[in-house]
Every structure is written in structure tokens, then in C-alpha cells.
């Protein structure tokens, strides 16, 4: 039977699915990590920066939010072919910076929703602006940013599938290999892959929810919720 032989192949291909899944998770963490590291200074520049800093941050954000992921991947990989960038580096730049652009807006929104009196109070006890951002603004902003940030996570775990176009062997690429070896049983193989992505997204969102609860401050969440009112 074709189906049962298909199931056999899937069963026998588990190391490929597993390795693809692990790669997908690693890529997701890498891209999101690059995203956070770049997004925080970008958002701070947009809010607290001088004119030129504000402008550059905005240009960065608009460009990387305004281009399709595939275009970015092609630009960084094929576009920079002369520089001999590896697929992983190209993918990390394209997807990481793209995520940074989105994340910068998450952090910007979170920071702007913090009452301006917080900064005034911090300055009034003699904190420098940088120290106030570190000790007062960011700890609050991060908590407010977790719910919208989970969204970015959910997008990213799925968007890792794009990078198969530059030749990274992640879950999608492994799926193609399995399909090739399974006499073209695409429906079955891609269904399995779909289930894996669903599972990963679900687990991630579950963990984010736990983190959000763990970091919650009594009475503070409601202040954040008020921000989300229309």
C-alpha cells in the first residue's frame, strides 16, 4: 500500500525531521537574539536619540519592515556573493535585522507607554538618563513587551522556513529531502512538517505565557492592559 509505505518512510526518516526541527529552533533563537540586540538600541535611538540618530533608526526600521523576507535573503546571499558570505551569515543578517525592525517597534511602543513621570522621578533623584533607562524604563518596558513579543516569536519560528532558499538545511529543506526519497508523497510529508511547526509555535507561546506570569508585578499588568485599550 502506498500510504503505509509512506508512513514507513516517515517513520524511518525521523532523524531528518528531528535534525530539521532542531535547526529550525536554533535559527529562530539566533534570529530573534540578533533582533533583540539590534532592536533595543534602535528603539532607544528613535525615542531618545538626537535628530540624526532618530533619522537613521527610522530609515533602518522602515527599510527592513518594508521588504519581503525573500528579497532580503536574496539580497544578502546572492547580492553579496562577491564577499563570499555563507548561507548562515546571510540568513542571520537578513532575518535578524528584519526581526530587529519589527521588534524595535514593539519596544518603542512599550517604552512610550510608560508614564513620563517615571523618567522625571529617576532624574530627580540624580540618575543619569542612561542609568534611568537601564534601571527604570527598560525593566518596565520588557514586561510590557512580552505579549507583543510572543507574536514576533510565532512569526519567526515559521519564517525560519524561508531560509531554505539560500541552502540552509532546516526543517523545510529536510522535508524536501524526505519527499524526494518517498516517491513524492508530498501531502503526507508536508503534513508532518506542518504539525511540527504547529507544535513548536504552541510550545513557544506556552513558554512565553509562563515567562510573562513569572515576571508579572502585582497590579502592574493592569497598567499594561490599559495601554492596549483602543
Amino acid at each position: 500500500m502506498e500510504t503505509s509505505s509512506g508512513l514507513m518512510i516517515i517513520w524511518e526518516s525521523w532523524p531528518m525531521f528531528l535534525s530539521g526541527t532542531i535547526t529550525a529552533v536554533q535559527l529562530c533563537i539566533l534570529f530573534l537574539g540578533v533582533g533583540v540586540v539590534v532592536a533595543v538600541p534602535v528603539s532607544l535611538s528613535q525615542i531618545y536619540g538626537g535628530k540624526s540618530l532618530k533619522f537613521s533608526a527610522s530609515v533602518f526600521e522602515q527599510v527592513f519592515r518594508g521588504l519581503p523576507a525573500l528579497v532580503l535573503l536574496f539580497l544578502f546571499y546572492f547580492g553579496l556573493a562577491e564577499l563570499d558570505v555563507s548561507p548562515l551569515v546571510a540568513a542571520t543578517l537578513a532575518m535578524g535585522l528584519r526581526s530587529a525592525a519589527y521588534q524595535s517597534q514593539i519596544f518603542r511602543g512599550a517604552i512610550l507607554s510608560i508614564d513620563s513621570g517615571q523618567m522625571v522621578a529617576a532624574r530627580s533623584i540624580g540618575m543619569s538618563r542612561i542609568r534611568a533607562i537601564k534601571c527604570v524604563i527598560l525593566p518596565q518596558a520588557i514586561r510590557l513587551a512580552i505579549p507583543p513579543w510572543s507574536n514576533e516569536f510565532a512569526n519567526m519560528i515559521k519564517d525560519t522556513s524561508y531560509v531554505f532558499v539560500v541552502g540552509i538545511i532546516e526543517l523545510m529543506r529536510q522535508g524536501r529531502y524526505v519527499v524526494a526519497g518517498s516517491f513524492g508523497n508530498a501531502l503526507l510529508v508536508y503534513s508532518v512538517i506542518a504539525l511540527i511547526y504547529l507544535f513548536l509555535t504552541y510550545c513557544g507561546l506556552f513558554l512565553m505565557g509562563r515567562l510573562s506570569k513569572k515576571l508579572a508585578i502585582p497590579g502592574f499588568a493592569s497598567a499594561g492592559a490599559a495601554m492596549e485599550r483602543i
Binding site: D115, G117, Q118, A121, P139, I217
Partner: peptide, 9 residues
Amino acid sequence: FQNFNLFTH
């Protein structure tokens, strides 16, 4: 301050 401005976190 009028609005206290305590650090909420």
C-alpha cells in the same frame, strides 16, 4: 510629585 511617580516595577 503630584502623581507620586513611584517606580511601578
